[in-house]
């Protein structure tokens, strides 16, 4: 199963990003291969529609679960439509590596 975590940087030592559509990177963790890949959010500075674009990216990545600080209404609508689980986590000091430890 693939889980995406929003991240402020592109390494496992980077801290967790509370924003979804405006999050800097998406860390995609595959529980079968135990590998984490980082994808840059190309729409981080978009004038509008960043949430929708981020949700599209999740569908393309084949994610089934997303961990982020919050989800906007447009992103939520699309993610719900494709049955992607949204997990809200509110600790913005934790690193990606620590979250990966928690979920694996």
């Amino acid at each position: 199963m693939k889980t995406v975590i929003t991240s402020k940087g592109n390494q496992e030592q980077s801290t967790f990003d509370l924003r979804f559509g405006r999050g800097a990177y998406f860390c995609c963790f595959d529980s079968e291969t135990k590998k984490a890949e980082f994808h840059k959010n190309e729409f981080v500075d978009a004038q509008g529609g960043a949430g929708t674009k981020a949700a599209e990216k999740m569908i393309e990545l084949g994610a089934q679960k997303i961990i982020s600080g919050d989800f906007g209404p447009k992103a939520k609508e699309l993610l719900e439509k494709f049955n992607i689980q949204m997990v809200i986590f509110e600790n913005d000091e934790i690193t990606i590596a620590e979250i990966l430890k928690l979920i694996s």
């Binding site: 004038q47 529609g49 599209e56």
Partner: peptide, 11 residues
């Protein structure tokens, strides 16, 4: 220009 269109080919 306005990110109004979502097209996701795999689905």
């Amino acid at each position: 220009e306005f990110n109004a269109i979502s097209v996701i080919p795999p689905v």
